[in-house]
Design a protein around this nucleic acid. Structure first.
Lengths: 212, 212
DNA sequence: GTCTATATGATGATAGAC
DNA sequence: GTCTATCATCATATAGAC
């Protein structure tokens, strides 16, 4: 058991460090998470952590990168399946709520670490932004697919921003009331109304037209 | 000039410390803001800071308390004036956007410090929660006034949650894109649609009925 | 109330044996 | 790759003159 090949030992240790570092940092924030906290929490000595990541900043970047790839892998494809708008919208919102529910750390990492402007360096800021941009792009593509907005990019942008901000707000609400969830029902109503407001037809059964 | 009465000197120093502490903490977060940073930024020695607030936690609580009262004073009264729903809604959203625009620190303090679960102690957590509760109550009362929902508290709660989460999401978006604003237009459309969805009539001119 | 000076501990980071 | 031992620095917090 303890005689596992060294190569595997290294990879497993790296993963263990990232696991506990991600958990602690998403809980306490970057600055409040010390290397020794990570060390005692994951059992590996401080110097091993430094051997793997070089610096605290390096841990942070690695944690973010991993959270990003994990969340993006968990998100449903941007090409939302479904016959009509309402069907696709339900699928999209359900998947979004599910991702938020099952990956609370991912979002909280972005949020709790968004305050990192002093400690973290260029590489970390780049990684934070990359994470954020990936989410924005995914939301835009998904919304565009749901409402068939390929020829109305500005409408897709607005709906995506709207959705993403509501999701972010919910993630924040969650650290005050841990059982808060993304309320898909109001969001569904709102998005349909917004689409209609921009003249994007929905009319599947007794649908009402646009406003202006 | 330097001979101002000692009593005034003390109060002014207290304010100066709170000013810079609030700014630094909203920028870097609680943990990343050190006493010496505050000291050099506001010119007063470390021991003066301790004389006024006793501990770092004490500074934090005072900063939060001050941000709360400042924000609540800046928020418009919960009894929104206006003849009809649309008029009141416009007033409400305009005021909300204005408060968010002019008091970015207030919200960011709540957010950037929401990660404070390890360092800050009971008093600080209480103050954070008090801050948050005040915002929630204000939003609920305002929305209730706008849509005349005094007999539909659960609808008022939902609309208030919706509004507040969108506002929070926007505040977060702001530390990625500093020029992000609360988009009142989509929010207006969404809230009207949500109200209608719950059977709350708006119909002022060509209004459409509820969905179900 | 404000200052200088300082105690005590924790932090990020490294050296070097194995 | 992992360990023990250690350094220099910075943190919070205090003492005591003025």
């Amino acid at each position: 058991m303890t005689e596992a090949p060294a190569l595997h030992r290294g990879a497993r240790s790296r993963d263990a460090i990232l696991d506990t570092a991600g958990e602690l940092m998403s809980l306490h924030g970057y600055a409040a998470t010390s290397i020794s906290m990570i060390s005692t929490a994951c059992g590996l000595p401080v110097s091993s952590i430094y051997w793997h990541f070089g610096s605290k900043d390096g841990i942070y970047v690695a944690v973010l990168e991993r959270a990003r790839t994990a969340l993006l892998a968990a998100l449903p494809p941007a090409e939302v399946p479904g016959a009509d708008v309402r069907q696709r919208l339900d699928t999209f919102l359900g998947d979004l709520a599910g991702a938020l529910r099952h990956h609370p750390r991912g979002v909280k990492l972005l949020l709790g670490l968004g305050t990192v402007q002093k400690d973290a360096s260029a590489a970390a800021l780049t990684e934070v932004r990359r994470y954020r941009d990936a989410l924005v792009a995914w939301a835009r593509d998904s919304v565009s697919s749901v409402f068939a907005l390929h020829d109305r990019p500005e409408v897709a942008d607005e709906l995506a921003r709207f959705t993403l901000r509501m999701t972010t707000g919910t993630a924040v609400a969650r650290w005050f009331e841990p059982d808060a969830v993304l309320e898909t029902e109001p969001l569904r109503v709102a998005l349909l109304a917004l689409a209609a407001h921009h003249g994007v037809g929905v009319r599947v059964s007794g649908g009402r037209g646009a406003e202006s």
